[in-house]
Design a protein around this nucleic acid. Structure first.
Lengths: 121, 121
DNA sequence: CAGGCAGAATTACATGTGTAATCGACAGGG
DNA sequence: CCCTGTCGATTACACATGTAATTCTGCCTG
């Protein structure tokens, strides 16, 4: 699966959230802090199409865009990549790191423990 | 802290593992599957210096390179970035994803549970 | 002392990415 | 029926990155 750049990912998020959408609709839904023009969003859409991670169908003389890959799949791939690179593929090393940095609230801990308990059953 | 590109990260790993080293030493220790020439490694070293994530001291007419940032700090930043982008900052969502993908072995689960238990005490 | 080798510095070049502007086609309103 | 606004397509351009080659400079060896 093709890599998706940081900015492109913001466009994917819009379409994972709601699809199909026209280019203008996507532009309207991209987080404002990006400050992108419609032209920029159209460039992103073209590149994502070229990468095969988006599909489009014609609607008159416009396109309706929709994701061609599932968000979970992409997220899984990226997380796997990071865990491999930075933690030697060891998930516990990642968790230990988060713990050492106080990234785990008591609620997080409880939730994760619950998840793991269910996994074992 | 400046972003470190994928290839550059491989160079940082060498120096986090052992420092200080000369450019030639670094090149010799970079994973062979990269297939980099010495010139390429030198380019990486210059760029990492420019980014301020490496430091160098003179040793005769050579340089000895050493990391200027701690590995844990960089890893923490990158993991945080990923968790924010892909899981809305929610660590349990990441763990759930890993679980759903069968990325957690029973040993991993046990290890993480142990970690969390200690956290609470 | 001269020539070559070892180092860093400089330059090179293709591809990816962020961020558009411009172009060409066409549909709908006046 | 023509003008204008709207679409996608094409082109633009700067900076990052992967991957070097070339240049400059000085030390060592013969």
């Amino acid at each position: 699966m093709e890599r998706i750049a940081e900015g492109e990912y913001a466009v994917m998020e819009v379409l994972w959230d709601e699809a199909p959408l026209t280019a203008a609709d996507v532009a309207a839904r991209v987080p404002e802090h990006r400050g992108w023009s419609l032209a920029t969003v159209k460039t992103m859409l073209s590149r994502l199409l070229a990468k095969g991670v988006l599909a489009h169908e014609e609607d008159g003389r416009r396109y309706l865009y929709r994701p061609a890959i599932r968000r979970e799949d992409y997220v899984a791939e990226e997380s796997g990549r990071l865990i491999d690179r930075m933690f030697g593929g060891r998930v516990p090393a990642l968790v230990a790191q988060l713990a050492a940095r106080d990234k785990l609230t008591p609620a997080d801990i409880a939730e994760i423990e619950k998840l793991l308990k269910e996994l074992k059953s």
